[in-house]
Structures are given as C-alpha cells and as structure tokens.
Amino acid sequence: MELTFASYNIHKAVGLDGRRDPDRIMSVLREVDADIIALQEADRRFGARASVLPRALLDDTRWRPLPVAKRPRSLGWHGNALLVRRDIKCLHAEPLDLPTLEPRGAVLAELDLRGEHIRVLGAHLDLSGLRRRDQIKAILKQCTRRGKMPTVIMGDFNQWGRLTGAMQVFGMGWQQITPGASYPSARPIARFDRIIATPDWSYETSGVHHSATSAAASDHLPVWASLRTA
C-alpha cells in the first residue's frame, strides 16, 4: 500500500501579497493531491480560533478534516489540522497538549485503510530548541502509550539541522525525511518542514511542491513524501 503524505504551513491563508485567500490555499492542496495532509496555522490565533479554511471549501474536495479541534469554529488544535481522503476510515483522533512557553500543540489520528491500521500526527514545534526537544519527547511518549503501529509525523519542526538539535530525540529508530528547502516560499533556504516515519514504511520518493501558486499562497511551500507499508 503506497500513500502520499504532505505537510503545509499555510500561514493562516495569508500570502506574500498580504491577502488572506483560502481559495488559493485550496488550489495548492489540489496541486499536491496527497492522500493525507497535515496543516499548520490553519486557525486564527485569537478569539474563537476560527478556521481560515471555510468547511464549505473542503466539502468540494476529496478530503475531510479529522475531529481534532477543541473549539467549534476551529479546524485543528493550535492551528494543527489533519485532512484525509474521504474513503479512509478514522478509528481515533485527538489533540495533544505540548510543553511550551507559547501556544503549541499537536494532533494525532489512527486510520483504517482496507483493514491496515496506521497512525499520523501533525505538529508545529517551538522556536526554542529546548522546548522542541520536550515536545518531540511528548509526541513519542503518546505514540508509545497508544501502542505499536506504522506511524508518520509531519509538520513544521522549526529546526535548521536535519539530524541535529531536537531531531536527535528520534534516534535511529525513525526515518527522517527532509524533502528540501521550503521556507521562505519566495526564495527557500530552510528545511523546517519534514516528514518522519517509523521503519514500517518503505521510502519511495519525496519533494517540495513549488508552483506559481504555492510560491505566493503562504510563506512556506508544501512538502510531500510517498511511502509504502513494508
């Protein structure tokens, strides 16, 4: 079974022109056309934390949002949301609180794909390296608590080095996929956006989605990886 996973920090749907344009973000998601998508900054930060992507826009796509929000108008938790193909069954979904000095969180879901169960998580980690370490430890602890399962963790890790700093917490037991430079979208130099997988997955290919639309829609470019269950 081969699946395409994608991670995209949508910057609250505000593009490089300063306009909030949810339709433009949806156009980028259609270009990427992944099976499972982790979004960061999908909700407004203040007030009711309303989603910046109207659910009516998602109704016309091949994806549905998973129930990870704690607030009725939110799409996710601290901006983290998960979209999955409509034929994928959700067995469990929950928001995770992470240790932090600023509002941060993660989201977790366990899915059934034709009888095969997998786990996916989306996260947006802290700017502080020490906090990033604590947050990755909290995510891995929750994975351990819920039991062994093919797992993929996606998101904006805010980490410059591929295998340095907080990324060392993953150790040798995880595949760290860094598709390429994705930030800032106008002239990408940083590889903050990553996809991390357990050894249950066979790596096929990965990349950064760079198009005219994605270069303007957010300050990050989406990253993706195709993985096959081993």
Rank of each mutant, 00 (worst) to 15 (best):
S51K: 10
D97G: 08
F46D: 06
L96V: 12
C90N: 14
P67S: 06
R44W: 10
A48M: 06
W77Q: 14
V14H: 02
T61A: 03
W77G: 05
L91R: 15
L113M: 14
G122D: 03
S74V: 08
C90K: 13
P99N: 09
K12P: 02
R44H: 09
M26S: 02
L83E: 00
E110D: 15
L58C: 05
R49P: 01
D87P: 11
L111H: 08
R62M: 13
L101V: 08
A38P: 12
L66M: 12
A81Y: 10
L101F: 10
A42E: 06
G47C: 07
H78D: 15
V14A: 09
M26Q: 04
L83V: 03
D17I: 03
P65A: 14
R45D: 08
A42V: 03
L57Y: 01
L75E: 02
I118N: 10
D21M: 04
E41D: 14
R20S: 12
K70Q: 09
P95W: 07
A56D: 11
D97F: 07
L58K: 12
Q40R: 09
P72N: 01
D60L: 12
A48P: 07
Q40V: 06
P54Q: 10
H78A: 14
A13C: 14
P99M: 12
L57F: 00
A13E: 12
L58Q: 04
H11E: 08
R44P: 00
V120C: 11
D59C: 08
I118G: 12
E31V: 00
P72E: 04
H117M: 14
D17L: 05
V32H: 03
G18H: 06
